[in-house]
Amino acid sequence: MERTRQVIGMVGIGQLGLPIAVNLMQAGFRVVGFRRTDREAFLRAGGEAVQSPAEVARAADVLLLCLPGEEAQAAVLDGPDGVIGALAPGKIVIEMGTYTRECKVQQALRVERAGARMLEAEVSGSPPMVAERRAALYVGGDEALFQACKPVLDAITEHHFHLGELGSAVAMKLIANTLVAIHTLAAAEAMNMGVRAGFAPERVAQVIRQGAGNSAMFTIRAPMMAARAFTPAPGSFNTLHKYLRLGAGMARELGCATPLFTAAAPYFLRALEGGMGEEDISAVIKLLEAESFSPRQDGNFPLE
């Protein structure tokens, strides 16, 4: 099918779904979408808004679902004017939400009973990374279906990887997000140490990211820490909480030793408990600042 004639449907055109939709439109796809509120940015970008998930499913050749959790997903699949009842043979569903492997397998069975086919495509990257086509897509499902969907995936980002059967993509996403937590806390630790050593925070952010100590999270979040720009949040503590829970569960099931993740996760949970849920996870630096003590006091440093 010609790209310009293929219709992509999107249910979930919020913080992450919107830049995905924009990338698709810029690549020449017609994009039809549904969101209950705040559709203006989607419309301004050239999207076509309809009144229900079912309308999106009926209009689309390929349907992307980009929803924040299993409750929202269930409402879209099964609620009034839901997706499942509107699917037909030949349709393709790409599930972009992060849920358990069991949830995705059950969803795929339901999609297949309707005559359609399903891939999972986990997004690894912040909304700005998606907008700049620097994010990665981890894809699970049938290899032939992955190949058929490559024009759509290419339009979102050139960095996409087919990892195996359904469920493999969410496993890789959880591995990646354990590193997000670890590297963000490490960036906060470095920024706090730099400021306490007498450097301007902007200088620490500028210099460290040019050397061997840099990471993707330092590049993104050290400038946010320096500017104290914790809202609006490209990645909030509320959002990360799901990945911490699922990642810890996967590590337990696999019997993995996770010393760094085990040390890092409680900081993000404390931020949630402290009412910081809507702030970006870069705000974890505030916890380290609060824990820091006068240089004249004795610390607990095992290398001394």
Rank of each mutant, 00 (worst) to 15 (best):
R245K: 00
A186C: 13
R228S: 10
A135F: 05
L64C: 12
T184C: 09
S236D: 05
F42W: 06
G277T: 11
I182A: 12
G125A: 10
M250V: 13
C103R: 01
M224N: 08
H160L: 06
A263K: 03
P234F: 06
V204H: 10
I285S: 09
K173C: 08
I20G: 05
A144Q: 14
T258V: 15
R5D: 10
V7S: 01
F146C: 01
A188K: 07
A187T: 15
E273M: 04
H241Y: 10
V56Y: 00
Y99F: 10
A49V: 09
G249L: 04
C66M: 15
G79H: 01
N177P: 09
H160M: 10
R30F: 02
L109N: 04
F261L: 14
F42V: 11
P234N: 05
I20Q: 11
V139S: 00
M217T: 15
E95Y: 05
L246S: 06
A114I: 13
E143N: 02
F293T: 11
M250G: 03
D61S: 08
E48V: 12
F301G: 01
P295T: 03
P232T: 04
D298N: 04
I94C: 12
G17T: 03
V105F: 02
A176F: 06
Q107C: 04
A290L: 07
G14Y: 11
R209V: 12
I175G: 14
K150P: 01
E279F: 08
R113W: 07
A197C: 12
K242H: 07
A135I: 05
P127F: 03
A248Q: 12
L174C: 05
F301Y: 09
V123T: 14
E132P: 02
R3Q: 14
L137H: 08
E102P: 08
V32R: 02
L64V: 11
I182H: 11
N300H: 12
D38S: 15
S126K: 15
E253P: 11
G17P: 04
M129C: 06
F42K: 10
L119G: 09
A27N: 09
G140I: 06
G14N: 08
E112Y: 05
A21P: 11
C103P: 00
A72K: 02
R36S: 14
A57T: 08
A186Y: 07
A135G: 06
L109Y: 00
G249N: 02
A108T: 05
A121F: 09
P259A: 04
L67D: 02
G167K: 07
A75H: 01
L260G: 08
Y243M: 00
S126I: 12
H160A: 09
A155V: 13
V207K: 01
A57Q: 08
G115Y: 11
L16M: 15
A251W: 03
E202F: 14
A75E: 00
I220Q: 13
A114Y: 12
A86H: 03
V83N: 00
G69A: 07
P232V: 10
A49K: 03
P266M: 04
A187C: 14
I20W: 10
I13N: 04
